[in-house]
Design a protein around this nucleic acid. Structure first.
Lengths: 199, 199
DNA sequence: GGCGTTCTAACGAGCGTTCGAACGAATTTC
DNA sequence: GAAATTCGTTCGAACGCTCGTTAGAACGCC
């Protein structure tokens, strides 16, 4: 029954946008039902509860984020290019799906039970993947900055994007990604070998 | 009546920590009352409403943040030192008052009416002050990165700190601030004049 | 006795959730 | 071929509960 799954995704879209706009605690099932063009009881045919709706929204978002990452990284080989690809993908996701990412940033802490454990595990893996890239980049250089802080700084600058980015087309987003990865790569340390020979 | 103001601050402390832990939407006045060791009605003697409590918490936090900034910047003259002082102050505030900063990051959007306008104005000024520092730093260098993105990246890496920082003493925080400002200054561009003379 | 402070108890509203009926399009029955 | 039946889907209406907020009385210190 493809019709059911299509309407489930539409219900999750509605929940996602309402959570993103009002935050989980202030959002009501009546808000979500209105956004989904359903009655409240009609909405419950697709979403078992408000709490599970949050879990499904978060799970769906992180799933898309993680799958996209593997696709993006498979196209680049050297550490610098891999890191640039990672930033491009991450910033791209944030700008293409701002509502989904707002929920992940803002409301993930409101998860409980199994959903909380599962989603946190996906996130942990995603972060670990990024940390590995930072380590690979640092190993090519004489980096004085701790990996822990460098990774955190990288995520910080990317995840702050929703607060100010108002770009429209995809080239705006990849421009942001390009400048951010440049700032990061240059900031983490000068390359071990300079382009011009020293002696 | 110094006793009143002391207990008002205690009530705001309670509200701040509950907001930080549960987020504004999920926090209840009963939670805050319990944290303040007051009955619900007793709490209302100090806080006119939940909404105004959020406004007062945010206002108090931004006030402290802004006042501390002026103090921190008055001690450093050259642009680089000023930016380093700014980062040290900002990261210091986040690590010393994590609850306050969590509320600012997370729940400020839930503000309404006059409180919203007033707090947003303080934030705008604070951000503008930081942007000026970034401009001053960039003018000393050949920076290829847009000021807008650079400023956003700087705020992003600093504001992400609460997500991972678990340091205890003040030296941990200033170490983080040092590495972050180094990453940023080095990343924004190479200095125009090298420390060693060129010709 | 007065006043600043705190309490117990309750109000009305809105919340998440559920019940039982009604819809409509297949599918079956005669 | 029309009537009856099934089943996935949607609905209006309501349940019980918790929320923010308030009234009014009691406390303790000057």
């Amino acid at each position: 029954m493809p019709g059911y799954d299509l309407r489930l995704q539409a219900a999750l879209d509605a929940a996602e946008s309402v959570f993103a706009e009002k935050s989980y605690g202030l959002a009501t099932m009546r808000d979500i039902a209105a956004a989904a063009n359903l009655s409240v009881a009609g909405l419950y045919y697709y979403l078992p509860s408000k709490q599970r709706a949050l879990g499904m929204v978060c799970g769906r978002a992180f799933q898309a984020l993680s799958e996209g990452l593997e696709r993006a990284l498979s196209e680049a080989a050297p550490p610098d290019s891999q890191l640039r690809a990672f930033v491009r993908h991450h910033v791209g996701f944030i700008t293409v799906s701002p509502a989904a990412y707002r929920v992940l940033l803002h409301d993930m802490e409101a998860l409980e039970g199994e959903d909380r454990v599962a989603v946190h595990e996906i996130r942990r893996r995603y972060f670990a993947r990024a940390a590995d890239l930072v380590i690979a980049v640092q190993q090519q250089r004489t980096s004085s900055i701790s990996t822990r802080i460098a990774t955190a700084a990288l995520f910080g600058m990317m995840n702050w994007t929703p607060m100010w980015y108002r770009g429209e087309n995809e080239s705006d987003a990849s421009h942001v990604a390009l400048e951010m990865s440049t700032l990061f790569l240059r900031g983490v340390a000068a390359p071990a070998e300079e382009p011009a020979a020293i002696a």
